[in-house]
Structure formats: C-alpha cells, structure tokens
Write a protein that binds this DNA or RNA. Structure first.
Lengths: 135, 135
DNA sequence: CTTCCGGTTTAGACTGTGTCTAAAAACTGA
DNA sequence: TCAGTTTTTAGACACAGTCTAAACCGGAAG
C-alpha cells in the first residue's frame, strides 16, 4: 500500500479519473501538510519531470478544489494557495513575511451566524489571524 | 462645513499632506460605505477629471491604509479592495458573484486567541462568511 | 523675483499570476 | 482499427499591481 495507491484511491473516491500528471501533482500536494501556490507546485513537479505544463497544474488544482480534495484560499499578497487540510480550521497570516500557517487550536464563533443575503447559502467561514513581526 | 473640509481634516489628523488628488480619491472613498478596488476607484475618479494617474491611485490607497484611514482586504478573486469602515467587522463574500458586503452584526470569537508564532504580534482577525448562490 | 529642494504625480514599461485557445496526444468502447 | 471523448500542452493573452525616471509643484532661501 504505497503512497501512490493511497492517493489513487483518494482521487477515485472523488470521481476524478487518474492520469500520471494528476498523480504526481496530488503526491506533492498531500506529501506534507503545507500551503502551496500553483507556481511553487509547478516548480516542484517540474524538477521531477519536464513533462507537466503550467496549464495542467492550474487546471488540476482547480479541479481538486472543486471536488473538495483541497481548500483554495487567498490572502493578502493575492496569491492563491492550496491547503491539503480540508477540515475547517483557522489560519495565521504573517503580513510581513507572507507566511501562512495552520492554526490547530479550533476557533469557534460565538453566537449564531448572521442572516445571509437572500438567495445564498453558506459555504464556509474563513477565520484569518493576521500578525506582524515585532520590531 | 462641507464634505471636503471634513475629509481634509481627516487627512490632516492622519498626518497626510493634502493634495488635490488625495482629496478627490478620499472623497470617492468615503462618500458611500462600500468596498472599492483600485481600478474601480480609478474609473470613478477618472470620469471626473482626466488628471489622476493609475500610479497615484495605487500609491494613495496604500498610503491611506498604512495610516489607518481605510482597511485593505483581499478575497477570493485576488483583488484588493478598500473598506472605509476601519472598525473590525466581519465580511460576507459571494463566491459566485465576487460581491463583498459588510456584516453589521458583530461576530465574536469564542474562547481565547491561539498562541501566536514567536516574534509576532496580533494585527487583526479577519472573519469572512463565504456564501454561494442557491440554484 | 528667481532658485533650489523635497515631496508628489505621471506615463509607460515591466512583473507576476492566472486564463484562454487551438491543436496534439492519450484514452475508451465498439 | 476507428471514431469520439477527455486530457494535456505551448503559447498567447488579460489583468492587477509595481517600478522607474522624469516632470511637476509649492514653499523657503537668497
């Protein structure tokens, strides 16, 4: 039961047909619990094989996030990063370094959610703790 | 006591020397409580006079947010928008339309904040309620 | 009044991130 | 094998934002 088999099963469960490119991308993405941008991922995958194009990386990441395999999030620098931890959890963003980390301690909201605009349904609630380096 | 005087005083209190461009930009920004991106603002100001360049709009918005006159925030589409309401308050983001609105009902966090990474200080906590259009 | 000088504005080139398109390649089922 | 569909690809494109070097402006000094 290698990591590859594990990931292949994950993709199959999400209804995503397996291709070699998707396998490689997923492998990088799930290997460590971290937040990767499309270009960082392209760099990593590209250093393994020269055979994966930029468009494929972007397409695949979008597909994965649509299927709920990863969580897409955007912070201050305007870059999209993909989090392989799909459980709802808050993030910590360092506005000086741009570093984004998970907050493992659960942060709950006190009280009920506000009434949503008519015609809309809740997707999720993002909580981002913004910090700065102290001088 | 016109709106212009009001805004001029606001800038002065923040230690920002007054210029005609800054006055116009601030005027648009504070006129209605809304969330404007740099390009939208450029469009609005540009329709009044042809005399304000893109670089100035970007510079001015950055200056204003550094001085605490507006709050800069980034959501899913990767665009920066500027909120003239600087009090901490949650936002509602429609992932289908890209629309960003204020949530006036205060949402508090239950429990204490997590311990921050060493060497950092809290700036603020962003809460974004993500919704989608129902089918 | 003229000159100087710092801060401000400007046009336009540039960068980085993400999207689109049309064609090639790789599957799939008959 | 063949046709039809899905996937991948390279490269052009779009957009938001930054950078740079020059022009501009207003006040202080001479």
């Amino acid at each position: 039961m290698t990591l590859h088999h594990d990931i292949a099963r994950k993709l199959a469960e999400a209804g995503i047909p397996l291709t070699s490119q998707r396998l490689l991308i997923a492998c990088e993405l799930f290997a460590e619990h971290c937040h990767l941008s499309a270009d960082e991922l392209l760099l990593r995958v590209g250093s393994l094989t020269p055979d994966i194009s930029r468009a494929t990386v972007y397409n695949t990441l979008k597909l994965f996030s649509q299927k709920g395999l990863v969580q897409e999030l955007v912070v201050d620098n305007g870059k999209r990063v993909y989090d392989s931890n799909t459980a709802p959890h808050p993030h910590c963003y360092n506005a000086d370094t741009g570093e984004l980390t998970d907050v493992h301690q659960p942060l709950q909201l006190a009280g009920p959610l506000p009434e949503l605009p008519p015609g809309t349904a809740l997707e999720r609630v993002d909580i981002i703790v913004r910090v700065r380096n102290v001088a």
